[in-house]
Amino acid sequence: MTVTEFIVSRLNYWIYIILMMIGLFAMISKKNLIKKLIGMSIFQTAIILFYVSLGVKEGSNIPILEHSVSHAAEHGEIIRAEDYANPLPHVLMLTAIVVGVATLGVGLAIVQKIHKEFGTIEEPEILAKIESGDG
């Protein structure tokens, strides 16, 4: 298998990993606290994409039964697991998205408080102000 074939067959994972690394890099090296939070959000989005893609099944439907199917199921027809996308990653990510928004809100509130205290959201300037006992 050539390198190109390997990349193409795993393209979805490569995209998530690259997105995740962009987020990680922003969290480590950016000095601006808001940019760090943006990095955290990108990281989170990559993980959400990864989980949802794990639930994909080739040729499957969304995990909601049509009315005709549910009526047939009431009369004993068996629902095949291959026909529906895996609902479990969807559930996990549904709550993760909303909790992600809430935690991002807490992060932004802390940054606002820091800005009120120190007048800046650049990390080196905050550290310098703390060391000089100002603020």
């Binding site: 067959s9 393209l11 979805n12 893609s53 794990l54 639930g55 994909v56 099944k57 080739e58 040729g59 499957s60 697991a81 291959e82 895996n86 479990l88 990653p89």
Partner: peptide
């Protein structure tokens, strides 16, 4: 991608 026989599925 989309493997119905993956461990998760």
């Amino acid at each position: 991608w989309g493997d119905p026989h993956s461990p998760a599925n």
